[in-house]
Design a protein around this nucleic acid. Structure first.
Lengths: 196, 196
DNA sequence: GAAAAATACTAACAAACGTTAGTTTTAATA
DNA sequence: TATTAAAACTAACGTTTGTTAGTATTTTTC
């Protein structure tokens, strides 16, 4: 009866995916049932299959959408003429921005990618590995140019990526710190820790 | 037929819990079936219920075991006569140690606590909130004594805890960095980022 | 306004889930 | 060695799961 409302911007599939992302974030992918997604959308579970192929497709769209956003951004940063430190700062700020503005999708991508099936799982992991290598290259160059102190690039990337990812905890309790303070303090903490 | 082998150190319940923890880490709690746990233990699913009350009890033992370890340690650090910076370094090193030596349990505790049922869920979250407050107090004192630069203690705690938690990714690919290098580099990165 | 396309519905499926009941087998105790 | 306690087994239960088939209804197109 109650049809899914679609606009020019948001297809019905987009709406379903967005609602699914919210539930995946709250309960986790395996613990989220198609029926619970249908409830939120305001439709019977079977009706969802007029718009999507199956449950995993929802997860796939979320994970690869996030991956593409990061790939696009790092390519842009690579081609800019900034210093290594500036590049690293840009990456950090973009991660923070994504955690703030695209929280649900990034969260789901971080937590539930393991439930992707082959060949998508391998594809996703390869993209992530590639991304970390490109990030790592920023650090290596910075060390060579003495902008960054001598350290393990792998560990630096690990530390930075894990730290920004932790913003998911900030979302659970935003009372204490504003988004702006969060960004300022975290960027400073992570950059000061590696500056030569 | 094949009984679970128990020793004086490890009760049969301990053995089941350890195997369950491995699976929870690999697949996640909701995606891990009692039958898959039984398979690994080498027994039928129904037999597990001679040793445990239900599935959630396994998760509970893991989560609260980890929580207790951290509570005990922070109490010890609090009562020591160290400087704020030393205390923070001690905490960081303990987190890293836990991530290295008690990986499975910490991972599960970090990822699947949300599947605890009440009243355990509230209990767990209260313990965590309390822990973060005590951690935050170290930072605040350090700022007051000018050992640490002026910054948001909340953000510092968030950054540090998230970073060390990220060691779970190191476990997936230990080839590039030794555990010792990991610890040294991460401790330096996180401490240099906050030193006055 | 009729025809076609999109999308909703109800009903049902096979499989997997956590868990219990009842029974048999193994190990510990006396 | 006989008795008791521990722990395994088989079988089954009631739910919930993702998904499909078939049909009715709504919206779009002409």
């Amino acid at each position: 009866m109650a049809k899914i409302k679609s606009t020019k911007q948001n297809s019905k599939k987009d709406i379903i995916t967005r609602q699914a992302s919210q539930l995946f974030r709250q309960k986790g992918y395996p613990a989220t049932s198609m029926r619970s997604i249908a409830d939120i959308v305001g439709v019977e579970a079977a009706s969802l299959y007029n718009h999507i192929k199956n449950k995993e497709e929802l997860l796939r769209d979320i994970c690869f959408g996030v991956a593409e956003a990061f790939n696009t951004q790092i390519a842009e940063i690579e081609s800019a003429g900034d210093s290594s430190l500036q590049k690293i700062e840009s990456i950090i700020r973009f991660h923070i921005k994504m955690m703030l503005e695209n929280y649900e999708n990034v969260y789901v991508s971080n937590h539930d990618w393991q439930h992707l099936k082959e060949p998508y799982l391998t594809d996703f992991l390869n993209q992530r590995r590639n991304y970390e290598k490109r990030f790592s290259a920023f650090i290596e160059t910075g060390v060579d140019k003495n902008e960054i102190k001598n350290m393990s690039p792998h560990v630096a990337v690990l530390t930075i990526l894990s730290a920004v990812r932790g913003i998911e905890f900030w979302h659970r309790n935003k009372r204490n710190v504003s988004a702006a303070d969060l960004e300022t303090n975290m960027v400073e903490h992570l950059l000061n820790g590696i500056k030569a």
